[in-house]
Design a protein around this nucleic acid. Sequence first.
RNA 1: GCCGCUGUGGCUAAGGGGUAUAGCGACGCCUUGGUAAGGCGUAGGUCGAGGGUUCAAUUCCCUCCAGCGGCUCCA
Length: 585
Amino acid sequence: MKALFSDGSVREEEDALHVLRHTTSHVLAQAVKRLYPETKLAIGPAIADGFYYDVDREGGFTDADLEKIEEEMRKIVKENLKVETFTLPRAEAIKLMEEKKEDYKVQLIKDLPEDAAISFYKQGEFTDLCAGPHVLYTKQCKAFKLTSLAGAYWRGDEHNKMLTRIYGTVFENKEDLDKYLAMLEEAKKRDHRRLGKELGIFMFSEEGPGFPFFLPNGMTLKNTLLNYWRGIHFPEGYKEISTPLILNKHLWEMSGHWDHYKDNMYTTTIDDEPYCIKPMNCPGSTIVFASESRSYRDLPLRLGEFGIVHRHERSGTLHGLFRVRCFTQDDSHIYVTPDQIEQEITNVVRIIDRVYRQFGFKYHVELSTRPKDSMGSDEDWENATNGLIHALGTIGLPYTVNEGDGAFYGPKIDFHLEDSIGRTWQCGTIQLDFQMPQRFNLEYVGADGEKHHPVMIHRVVFGSVERFMGILIEHYAGKFPVWLAPVQVKVLSVSEKSREYAAKVTSRLMAAGIRVENDARDEKIGYKIREAQLQRVPYMLVIGEKESEEGTSVAVRSRDRGDLGSCTTEEFISTVLRQNAERQD
RNA sequence: GCCGCUGUGGCUAAGGGGUAUAGCGACGCCUUGGUAAGGCGUAGGUCGAGGGUUCAAUUCCCUCCAGCGGCUCCA
């Protein structure tokens, strides 16, 4: 697509959508200024699937305003204004924006380098500070739609004023826009919050905002995942422990949590003593480590725990199973000698990759470095961070750096997974920690007969089992593979005459260890199939008079492939058991 | 927590100053039906909670709670 660059030249620009979106954000700002001239403009960039503009107006905006703005934007598009650009020296640029009373723009210019020439873009009566590039005429922005209204802090800092952010999207033509909107509709159908309810996996109650309830199907899914986890980890030398939910407050003071994490911690009192409900499992694990003397021969010591943690998250941040106040971490704390760090991190990365591959997940990796609020010496942090960088380099894993997002006790490697609409959520993480072993005075006896502090690796693969389940639900759109399906087989009797044999088949499958349910209701077979299908049960066994009389066979219907014809019950059982054992999709 | 929106039987929704509708589901009866909804009937709601305005509030106003989309924060 041809684009107008800030040097005044018109050249081809690869990322057509980006340019188009950026220009449409200007069209949005222009419409807002026409309708509400007192509004001050902040920033208006193109983003992954659209654009936004942050604006500041006394009283804000409502959904009704959005419609008016959209209408005005349509006019601007129709006027087909020519987009022009010009540059000004800094002082004049500031003067221009001051005249227009665009306080935020003035601030933006003042933050640019002293000697920079400041570029502007102009369409009709509207002029905006902008680096460009832009499309050539406003008519190109016709396939747009404003999508939502939100608050956003000036410069992303919650101490600053909250502005109104207007979100929209635009495509090169109406078909693409409609396709995108239809895709969003489709994605809504796989939303884990909706499917979680429909499939009887989990629920929430007003009595406990952010605290999920797991229903029978959800517990089956969760336990299946945990057993899969055990099957992966035990052969890798992990041992499983369990530590208390509630521990004395002084432990949390010692670990540093009270200093650095207390805003997220729930507390209680027992016998007049203050206690904390654990937000992390590490202090409990250190108590286990310290409970007996350890030798270098015991290391790496890999202590795993399905730890239930409670964290106070701000009410506006809760989001289905993705962001809760109580969740299960598939946690492990690995105690190593300094020269075991790299090998052990490599092992963990391999496990995480193996697990994510099992589910066919795409993921990306981030290295999170020292946050502002942290503890420990500069030297420790540097060593730990370099250790992670070195390990990542050795493995050859591509990653981006997430500055200042580490844990308060150490840097970390984060693994992010995508949900159904492309938002990413941190799941796996590997954290390198020199602090806890010092704070809790953890020691092992080295080959030299001296005592040494071990290094602690905190790591999770699923991350939060709850969040992981949410991702899984959306990934499969509820159609779990046989090995994960809460109900693997549904037996459907055609009529009363086949009830007895259906019950027999059900018990035979149950005895074989298959998760099976028998639908013996007085309903037509089509109705029962519809229901089982909506519940995404992988296999349905249709049991009618034919099967009852024959006595050894079943008619198999697959959720994905429809009627498969009949086979013997034993054949069917071995098929399901094999798919279950091999974890086939 | 902040900004905007939403909150009606188990679920999905309609309605709107004169105390409520429908579909699905549940239950009962009839039907015994072979691969995605058989028929008839019955029950079920202090319209999120608390205040206010009004002769009268589920409807208008305020506060709170919860949910949704974002921001900030994070597994």
